[in-house]
């Protein structure tokens, strides 16, 4: 059956395909589907019957997308050997008999997350209100209503932190929600003006609660500028640099300074980071564990390659901006 296009079928039972699982559920959540479509997704990707019980409703779907009602192996009872997870108001599972496939755990994890998200989106839930409060596409009145549901005063100064989903936070401390963005699903958390958060996180600029979309926008930008997987970037610390980065995002990939940095390997960029940041070349050499004269030579070579000295005053500004833009371009 040579098709012009492929057909979506179960993932490879042997090979881990995490990115595909994430991409599939992210697209469903971003599209605002219901639980049935999520379970259908789990079934087609796993190639076996998938199920979810949410409250008093049970959904079971076969890999062909058909709803299963009759041949229930149990009366909603999850077999101990099945891949399963508990969710806010129930469970999700795959009715896998025999050995587990490579992606079963990931599929169940993303299904659980997505079913919870869909549940949280129901009007009246706190997560749904926060999603509205940080959404630039909602009008001011809608956002004010959402704030009152969150018991937040519109005039209070707040910040939004954007976190990767993998970063578990104590969600009962502050209002939080998961939002679909062009950069995948992110968790948005409300932070007071002086509250701290551990990395990885991007923290948005402080804004009145009725202007939270701008804080969320800068938080996402800050998250994308993270130098590594454990740090925190605070948009407020970047000031005009953040505005410059934001304005240049569309053309960043064509900037010669960005292209020049992209051509270097990770080690060379680490050397440049240290050269630009350190008090002296000697201090940079110590930090990098290199001999002073070796770094000196490397500094000259890199200056030649870039066409500017990252330790000179104008060179530092040039390097910092290009370095930040490269992170935006390089991020998936």
């Amino acid at each position: 059956m040579q098709e012009l296009v492929g057909r979506l079928t179960a993932l490879d039972p042997e090979a881990s395909e995490t990115l595909k699982v994430v991409a599939y559920f992210d697209a469903l959540v971003a599209g605002g589907v219901g639980v049935q479509a999520l379970v259908r997704g789990a079934a087609v990707l796993s190639g076996t019957v998938a199920g979810a019980s949410v409250g008093r409703r049970t959904h079971r779907v076969g890999p062909d997308g058909d709803r299963r009602t009759d041949d229930a192996a149990t009366d909603g009872e999850i077999q101990r050997h099945w891949p399963a997870r508990s969710i806010t108001d129930g469970n999700v599972w795959l009715e896998r008999e025999g050995p587990r496939h490579a992606n079963d755990d990931m599929i169940v994890e993303r299904l659980a997350l997505a079913v919870d998200l869909v549940g949280a989106r129901r009007p009246g839930e706190a997560a749904s209100a926060l999603e509205t409060a940080i959404d630039a596409k909602r009008d001011a009145e809608e956002r004010r209503v959402a704030l009152s549901r969150l018991r937040l005063s519109p005039s209070r100064d707040l910040r939004i932190a954007a976190l990767p989903l993998s970063h578990e936070v104590a969600v009962d401390v502050a209002p939080s929600t998961v939002v679909a963005t062009p950069y995948g699903l992110l968790r948005a958390v409300v932070l007071g003006a002086d509250e701290k958060i551990s990395g990885p996180a991007g923290v948005g600029v402080p804004r009145r609660a009725d202007e939270l979309p701008e804080s969320f926008r800068t938080a996402v930008l800050a998250l994308r500028l993270l130098p590594d997987n454990s740090s925190v970037v605070d948009a407020a610390d970047l000031g005009v640099v953040l505005a410059a980065v934001s304005a240049m995002e569309q053309v960043a990939a064509q900037q010669p300074d960005v292209v020049a940095l992209a051509r270097l390997d990770a080690r060379a960029r680490a050397v440049l980071d240290e050269l630009a940041a350190a008090e002296s070349v000697r201090a940079a050499a110590t930090a990098l564990g290199m001999h002073h004269s070796t770094l000196q030579a490397r500094h000259e070579a890199l200056t030649n390659e870039l066409g500017y000295d990252p330790r000179s005053l104008p060179g530092r500004a040039r390097f910092q901006l290009a370095r930040l833009l490269l992170r935006l371009v390089a991020a998936p």
Partner: peptide, 16 residues
Amino acid sequence: FDPELEATLALLGDQL
């Protein structure tokens, strides 16, 4: 695109 179709494209888009 319909959300389920968008999700399918996300997986199979690179095939074609």
